[in-house]
């Protein structure tokens, strides 16, 4: 079975972001400012587990600038077999519509993919759209908010998953190939091993293929800013949070708790 995962490099979750003249910059004194989108680690983990169970290989795909390799490095370090960076100046300024076109083209180019797995969303853009747009573009079974992959029947060509829906859980079965977006509940991602890290840094230096628009035989009007429908009109930092601290004083802990509950109800926190 050939499983693909799509992953994105994002700012670290502990990075300090700053906005100046509409430009966002970030740094992280505690470590690397760029990381693999944390949601994508669940997709990577699930793909590796499926490979361990059913055999085959896992290919990681990422779209981004040439230097944006953190997501792919993490993917290989965790245990993916191969990685592809899809990168082209012309892809700059892509919204999810343009991104999904490029990713779908890359998955088509891989040729024999049975299953593509995404994290539910990226921590920077937070749209959560790309996975289902890719499914639509490929015409594959779209399975979003997956919390368990119950069965993959490669021979019968079906996949059964459990989805989280507002009212509870839903078990669905659909034909392969399929595109999944997964939630945190699905697994606990492994830490990259030292051996994996060594392999990943070597792979990034020597073997990483970089596919440009021409390699994908993509229509240049559908990529980058040209292929996008969303424009960033304004980017600004949120005003700092303000708040005040009230100490609840009462005769007994029970009375204090009751007063706290009243206040929380009043503020519509509860």
């Amino acid at each position: 079975m050939h499983i693909a995962i799509c992953a994105k490099q994002t700012p670290s979750t502990t990075a300090v972001l700053a906005v100046e003249d509409g430009k966002v910059t970030w740094s992280d004194p505690g470590g690397s400012p760029d990381i693999a989108n944390p949601w994508d680690e669940y997709a990577i983990e699930e793909a590796i587990r499926l490979k361990e169970k059913h055999g085959g290989k896992v290919t990681a795909i990422s779209m981004g600038p040439e230097e944006a390799r953190e997501a792919l490095k993490t993917a290989i370090a965790m245990g993916c077999d191969e990685a592809v960076l899809v990168s082209d100046e012309a892809m700059k300024g892509s919204d999810t519509l343009a991104t999904s076109y490029v990713l779908a083209k890359a998955i088509e180019k891989l040729g024999d993919v049975d299953l593509v797995i995404f994290g539910r969303q990226a921590v920077d853009g937070d749209t959560g759209q790309t996975s289902m747009q890719v499914a639509r573009r490929l015409g594959w079974t779209p399975l979003s908010f997956v919390v368990a992959v119950d069965e993959v029947d490669a021979e019968g060509g079906t996949v059964t998953v459990t989805r989280a829906i507002e009212a509870g859980r839903q078990k669905v079965k659909g034909p392969l190939p399929a595109a999944l977006s997964v939630l945190k509940e699905i697994n606990e991602p492994r830490y990259p091993s030292f051996k994996g890290i060594r392999q990943a840094t070597k792979y990034m230096r020597r073997s990483l293929p970089i596919w440009a628009t021409a390699d994908l035989e993509a229509d240049s009007s559908k990529i980058g800013a040209a292929g996008s429908r969303v424009r960033w009109l304004q980017v600004y930092a949120l005003p700092p949070k303000e708040g005040e601290c009230t100490m609840i004083e009462a005769d007994s802990p029970e009375a204090a708790a009751a007063e706290l509950v009243d206040k929380l109800l009043e503020e519509k926190v509860l």
Binding site: G31, I197, A200
Partner: peptide, 10 residues
């Protein structure tokens, strides 16, 4: 090195 930085993060 890149490898050492990645060890450290892991």
């Amino acid at each position: 090195s890149e490898e050492q930085q990645m060890f450290r993060s892991a």
